[in-house]
Design a protein around this nucleic acid. Structure first.
Lengths: 335, 335
DNA sequence: GCTGCCGTTTGTATCGATAAAAAGCTGCCA
DNA sequence: TGGCAGCTTTTTATCGATACAAACGGCAGC
């Protein structure tokens, strides 16, 4: 594989001149430039990125750590982030953490290896107790839930507000016994807890009691576990007329479980999700949901990260950005 | 940020000794090792991967180029590949090509930049005419469709065989006018053409005529376009009693379009897809499909690539591997 | 013809880690 | 005591690109 030296020799110039041509520096005589370009072409020269990275101290790659890329929500998020990063001239490398705390911490340390110029971390497993791990000397942006007081930039989902709006929508559609399907509660700042809080607030605002019977807890936020949890709860009749699902993926599992039990949606039970993944509009019945504007959040997250990378040193204050959201009403809540 | 030299100085040894400790070489006295480890810990030392890459001529990262990560099939594929790569100690960086030929070619050239040790390319836009572009001097594995005679390893979907099996299944369920929903035909080796060929073969084997009216062509293999194409075709009644959809994503669009038209699945029309993405089991009705064993294919693709990277030089013959598949019967074809 | 300036080109050092070879140490035996 | 084998450790050179400063060449002006 040809190096810059080979090209230099072939073109009868120094390596620096070749470098100058590659990087579009001014003050290279056109005739020289042409000679160099011709030599590069002839030798099939390609920049060695490792060498450039070493010299420049940058890799041009950011890391994206998500629980699992194979879930509509994270797929969608990743797509938005890859696109946003490309606009900043950055590539994206994806780590799967399996929502496990230790893997999320490992992702942080990879980025310390200078493999990435910065890291976008979608935390799920880490809790407030791990805030210390975030206190690193390289750019990190948390995307998703809320890490209290973490010393990093943070783009937050509008968890509580949007959950409240979703639940309120069920109230407005005359649901009176509204269930929530979520993951295990107890953490301070995970998706389930935050969205559960929004759900409770909506109930309170509507003067509805918060019946613990109506909290359906799945082992994990997957279709399988959501369906299983709902089936179990429905052993003796639904006992609810509305369901707020903490993600659209969960909602898909719930819709399936309801269908298995012969429960008609939206006639007998109304269902609303959270995320507005692409699939939601195409389900039968199509799924009402709240849409947190992924593109905007991705754009903001990458923007913050890029700013940190480009020298926005540690003296810059950390930023918090809470995304906007939009209620999307479809068939599953009666259109 | 501390370098290996800093650690060496702090531990009172040479840089090489530190390097030896890092890389777990034998012949480092335990006492020395401890001293080095302590210094590394104290200084918060992290390997500079760019420097190591330069020296070793490897990056430890492979590229995965897919049309769009935000589609269930590619998400699933990416998840499998990331997992398989991790087993080989490789990281995965994802490029989105948008199924566009020029982006697929660009992905090839990125890998030429030695950014990646190798590339797994899921071709969609490139055709047999671009075979020349694949003749590169670094490891590439094509995953997906068939590139005739490309000078690279190739893990192929069992496109024709599985499509034939899916269509045959519809025949066995007494469908007599079986439609196919696919993308534009005409290419020699794209998904749609190959799966269309399998569909035709099944019809021929069953002695059914191949009515061009039953070929529904979508602009792209998305839910939106599939739904649009089917709606258009159904303006004057369905005219078919079975549909083979070239992907599960397409099937989701089709199911939605049928629901909109008040057509009952599977009573009036039976539907089968291709891919067995996670969502398929949870749709209402759940989707029959063929499952190409993504994990196995991912494993094989990464395995081939890793072998090429580890010196399996260009003299090794290129390999072709056609994945197995499995028919998955669910509600959409009558259970 | 000489000076000085400006646009162009080149030499040298460097980023940080590591392969290969050389040099230091031990301890053991003759 | 000298010599040698076998671990340990260090020295030196290198991967390829680029920052920086120095050198070069041509030309206008005196």
């Amino acid at each position: 594989m040809a190096t810059i030296q080979d090209v230099a020799k072939a073109a009868g110039v120094s390596a620096m001149t070749v470098s100058n041509v590659i990087n579009g520096h001014p003050n290279v005589r056109p005739a020289t430039r042409d000679r160099v370009l011709e030599a590069m072409d002839r030798l099939g020269y390609r920049v060695n990125v490792a060498a450039r990275n070493l010299r420049k101290g940058r890799t041009g790659t950011i890391g994206l750590a998500v629980p699992e890329i194979n879930r509509p929500y994270y797929g969608r998020l990743a797509a938005s982030i890859i696109a946003a990063a490309a606009r900043h001239g950055l590539r994206v490398s994806i780590e799967q953490t399996g929502a496990r705390r230790e893997n999320e911490l490992a992702a942080l340390s990879l980025s310390r290896n200078r493999l990435y110029d910065g890291l976008i971390l979608s935390t799920v497993g880490m809790g407030p107790a791990d805030v210390g791990a975030l206190d690193v000397d390289h750019p990190v942006v948390i995307l998703g839930e809320r890490i209290f007081g973490g010393p990093v930039d943070h783009v937050a989902m509008p968890n509580e507000a949007a959950s409240q709006a979703a639940t309120r929508h069920l109230v407005e559609r005359h649901c009176r016994r509204i269930a929530i399907v979520c993951g295990r509660l107890g953490g301070e700042a995970d998706v389930s807890s935050l969205r559960h809080a929004g759900y409770l607030r909506a109930l309170a605002a509507a003067g509805l009691p918060a019946d613990p019977e109506l909290v359906v807890t799945a082992e994990s936020l997957t279709m399988r576990e959501a369906a299983r949890a709902v089936r179990q709860r429905m052993a003796d009749g639904p006992g609810f007329d509305g369901v707020f699902c903490v993600t659209d993926t969960v909602a898909m599992g719930v819709l399936r479980a309801l269908a298995d039990a012969g429960v008609r949606v939206p006639d007998q039970v109304k269902v609303i999700g959270f995320d507005n993944v692409d699939e939601s509009a195409y389900l039968v019945p199509s799924l009402s949901t709240v849409d947190p504007d992924h593109d905007l959040m991705a754009d903001r997250a990458v923007g913050l990260l890029a700013a940190r990378i480009d020298g926005g040193g540690p003296e810059r204050e950390r930023e918090e950005f809470a995304g906007p959201f939009r209620l999307v009403v479809r068939e599953s809540t009666g259109g």
